[in-house]
Design a protein around this nucleic acid. Structure first.
Lengths: 339, 339
DNA sequence: CTGAAAGCGCTTACAG
DNA sequence: CTGAAAGCGCTTACAG
């Protein structure tokens, strides 16, 4: 068995309580005793038992990270590693560990969260997505465990801590950028339609059209969840529209390139025939052909600030819910052209 | 405070020991008592305290996942999310949680691992990389904690459990594929030169040349760590070689596309002027231009089997070290041409 | 400045 | 079939 505080105590000729106080660097322990005990700890190779410590302190020093469909979708999406990088950095700075959800279905995830919370497996939770009518979010809101959301909650958002981009505004500006380039027929390829981020961006898209007196046409809207498994055909159909779009806004760079691939197979050139814009500014996008115009949404910062928010709440329960807006900006590259 | 076993016991009119046995579904407890206790647990919303349970069982039900430079490099590399997906799936099936390392430097990672092990924070560890003279691996080998490595350890490999591709063979076959297409001047863009995977692949590259009587030229070898921050210039220099290569093998699809970008800027076409091959078969590669010929190394399976190996070792300490080789296969697409 | 005792929330021989 | 007691490895009032 591993070395315990008792072994150290015996070896150093003090009580376990004293050893514990030395670990905590309690000022009431004499320097001499501290030195001796520390030496013994070192030579014996003592390390405090993490679980025992935390059981009495009633904390875990770990943060739960909940992702949508962890075993399948989330990992394909390059958003995930980048947001995790932000979380990881901040957590490490504060000596917190990360505990990842592994559930694959909505129901599994829910059960996992309940267990994390009730079983006191984590001190706080970061929810990596925000969707409409999400039971997980509802549950967290009821619980007293600190948590933060990456993305805007669909309701009562004032009462929860979250980090977000201003997705409505950003999408609006993106569309306006294309309108200014002379485009009047704009398609929108969004994420799953029950995600708040998709809803917000679609709203921004609509606002831009409205302000520029461009009629809205539902045939120009393609959501990831409805085309799942039928991507190629959906794009074909989109382009077969009576008046095909001259510009497409997609919700992710990798999706944009997938679309570009389908377009090229249809002998539709980018940006000659169709302009296209992505989101998320993946590292690789600037090296690919065409270099993709994209919206950088500061994914790393989303993770960083979400973590800050939970940690604040953990440190001081009375911290009021806080909302952080992270910058996003359009990066012009070579995938759009002026009409 | 949360509800404890005592609260349930009192409410149900039994002893805490009995409640504990009901939780464990101990057969010696009467069905009647079980029913009653379960009902009380349910109505009170009782959940076992994770840390308390594990303290007495001396286990944690969590697996440590150690990645190189977690906060920076690892996340950029699409290998990471995919291997994590494999780990995550397998861990979830066995009711294990995942605990991610967050250290950014070699030294930080080492400290984290020591703390995980000594502090009994995890039941086992998965090391996501294998590099030469790695103190982390040395430490794990000394410790008695179960662990598994993704990649071949540089020494004493028989004594550790690991999952690997046959990198030497795979690289050899990849190069031979190009040789058969008529290429005689082959460059190799590898990962960091202290990673065993890079070393093995380079070895395979050399073997292929040797068997086909092609002289080895060190100028054709470019390692990620030495060109770091100078990628563009390094590729320019590579192509400025007296006899420029007609084919390039790169260690990752995204790196391949980056290289292709630099080549195109130099007005060197792929595959017209230079053939190129990647590794890792990213989801997006088949949609990009040119569709990339690549080696699929079954990243998901690497993660899955590594997890299986640790779990076996956790379940039964006496399990001897085991090595698993995961398949890899060349996928021909449009980035190579016959000379 | 230090120790003995109680306690964190569980589990598990031992007794009955 | 069930309970009282001891214990997992720590921490922290309470006493001295």
């Amino acid at each position: 068995m591993a070395i315990t505080i008792k072994d150290v105590a015996k070896q150093a000729g003090v009580s376990p309580a004293t050893v514990s106080r030395v670990i905590a660097d309690n000022p009431r322990i004499s320097t001499k005793t501290k030195q001796k005990v520390r030496e013994v700890m070192k030579t014996m190779g003592y390390y405090p038992n993490f679980q025992a410590r935390n059981l009495v302190a009633n904390k875990t020093q770990t943060l739960g990270v909940i992702m949508e469909n962890s075993a399948t979708l989330a990992f394909q999406n390059p958003f995930f590693p980048e947001v995790l990088r932000g979380i990881s950095t901040q957590a490490h700075d504060s000596q917190y560990g990360l505990y990842l959800s592994t559930g694959a279905t909505q129901e599994e995830i829910y059960q996992e969260v309940v267990e994390m919370v009730q079983g006191r497996r984590v001190d706080g939770i970061i929810l990596l997505y925000s969707k409409v009518e999400d039971p997980v979010l509802a549950y967290l809101s009821e619980s007293s465990l600190p948590f933060a959301v990456v993305g805007r909650p669909d309701k009562n958002s004032q009462s929860v801590s979250y980090v977000n981009n201003n997705n409505i505004q950003t999408a609006k500006e993106t569309v306006e950028y294309l309108i200014e380039l002379g485009h009047q027929h704009l398609a929108f390829v969004g994420g799953a339609s029950d995600f708040v981020v998709s809803i917000d961006r679609l709203e921004g898209y609509k606002q831009a059209l409205r302000e520029h007196q461009i009629p809205f046409d539902a045939n120009y809207i393609v959501n990831q969840d409805v085309i799942e498994g039928n991507e190629r055909e959906s794009i074909r159909r989109l382009m077969a529209h009576e008046v095909p779009p001259t510009a497409i806004v997609t919700h992710d760079d990798m999706v944009a390139y997938e679309v570009i691939g389908y377009l090229e197979d249809l002998e539709i050139g980018v940006p000659e025939d169709v302009s296209i814009i992505g989101f998320n500014n993946h590292t690789i996008s600037k090296h690919l052909k065409p270099p993709l115009s994209t919206v950088d949404i500061s994914i790393y910062e989303l993770g960083l600030h979400a973590t800050e928010l939970v940690l604040e709440k953990i440190t001081d329960e009375s911290t009021p819910p806080k909302q952080v807006v992270v910058a996003s900006r359009l990066i012009e590259r070579g995938s759009c052209r002026r009409l």
